[in-house]
Design a protein around this nucleic acid. Structure first.
Lengths: 118, 118
DNA sequence: CGGAATCCTTTCGGATACTG
DNA sequence: CAGTATCCGAAAGGATTCCG
């Protein structure tokens, strides 16, 4: 196996980093860590996300094997999304990012004010 | 202090999440964790980044107080960037993301193949 | 309900040229 | 060297409509 390195422009690992280092991905994986959720509930929790973007985000996560899609043969349809074992290994790191943003936003806002005042 | 929550559409913490949950930010903070670096060296290490984007990324990080900019009064100019104490608290989480991408890319690539084969 | 399709606007990000 | 300014194409992402 090659020495994967996100710093190398053509290394495939960078495509994976680009996908996980993303606002919506972080929020989705953080929320899905609490258990499987149906599309509509996820959309409600990720306040402000459009249906299109949520669909694309989930499809990408499914393609990379981070999320499984459970389709129930009902009408109206019910589709649930759940983290795979691989996706679970990302839950803590991405939840940590969300927490960081929440825990440090006060300081960040202050820094922005100081910066903009110059 | 309010209950900051990245899931809330208008919560300021989401603007911070959007900035740190980003490919170039993750790579820059990961690299800067090894110590201060001048602009050109950073640009070399973040293979493929354009000068414009690196400048913008660093200015945003500086504005949020994650990075300090050291300008040396020399000619040709020498400018170095360094993580602040606040930025240092992000180093481990973001380095973890880079590492995750490198460590799991083989599995991810396999998952993509399987998915695309359908 | 969970999308897919379409349209449109905004943002991202690269290339180039120029400057202190 | 480390930017800044400008231009442009590509991609992200929202709104709306329609369908099984």
């Amino acid at each position: 196996m090659p020495a994967w390195n996100v710093l190398a422009a053509t290394c495939p690992s960078r495509t994976s980093l680009a996908r996980i280092a993303n606002k919506w991905t972080a929020m989705a994986v953080a929320v899905l860590g609490n258990g499987r959720l149906r599309f509509g509930d996820l959309k409600t929790q990720l306040e402000g996300i459009s249906g299109k973007v949520l669909t694309e985000t989930l499809r990408d996560l499914e393609r990379d094997g981070l999320v499984t899609r459970h389709v129930h043969a009902e009408v109206p349809p019910r589709v649930e999304y759940e983290l795979t074992p691989l996706g679970l290994t990302l839950h803590e790191p991405l939840l940590a990012l969300c927490r960081w943003a929440e825990e440090h936003i006060a300081e960040v806002l202050e820094n922005r004010e100081n910066y903009d005042a110059r």
